[in-house]
């Protein structure tokens, strides 16, 4: 009995250790120019025999850490200024199933790099390639295209009520209510 328990513990520890390597955090990435090698198709409608589609994977589509970095960049680069937190406003919503310029990772990447008519700026050459792929991976999670295991958990921004820590607390003792600015 005791041997069985020891064995099970060892097995659990092994699995736990393996789980640590679930994903890779790449801090050093080769900075590449934001340019595409071959055209990306927005439609399957083609003359003659249709060409094979490009492989539809971004480098970070299943990497939870990269997706959370993408979320941070999405807000820091002010994507949320137009798309809000996915609900859309000035720019189209990103959390629905409608994609004007395609939902494949390469399509989303191109939309960010090249910009789109009527408002979407072109970020190619300004935002590093690596970060664009992270933003792409995050954008796909907004409409549920990313694997569940890699998706970020709840977002405070999407809560109907403000989170407790974001509500203003009572002033701490000794602190004056007003800060002359």
């Amino acid at each position: 009995m005791r041997r069985l328990a020891t064995g099970l513990c060892a097995l659990a520890l092994t699995f736990a250790a393996l789980a640590c390597e679930r994903e890779e955090r790449r801090f050093q990435t080769l900075p590449a120019k934001s340019a595409r090698a071959q055209p990306v198709r927005l439609t399957t409608l083609q003359p003659g025999q249709s060409l094979p589609a490009r492989s539809g994977h971004g480098p970070y589509d299943e990497n939870a850490w990269a997706i959370s970095e993408g979320e941070r960049l999405f807000n820091q680069y002010n994507c949320s200024g137009c798309h809000f937190h996915g609900g859309g406003g000035i720019g189209p919503p990103l959390m629905d199933a409608k994609w004007i310029y395609g939902s494949d990772p390469q399509n989303i990447y191109d939309t960010i790099v090249e910009g789109r008519p009527n408002g979407m700026p072109s970020y190619g050459g300004h935002v590093p390639d690596d970060q664009i792929w992270k933003i792409e991976a995050y954008v796909r999670t907004l409409s549920g295209l990313a694997p569940k295991a890699a998706e970020p958990d709840r977002s405070d921004q999407m809560e109907a009520r403000r989170s407790e820590q974001a509500t203003s607390p009572a002033a701490p003792r000794g602190q004056k209510a007003e800060h002359p600015q």
Partner: peptide
Amino acid sequence: VDSQTLKPSNPMPATS
């Protein structure tokens, strides 16, 4: 040129 070697995981990307 390579901030990630000096301070890994900081938000500044490498520059080419």
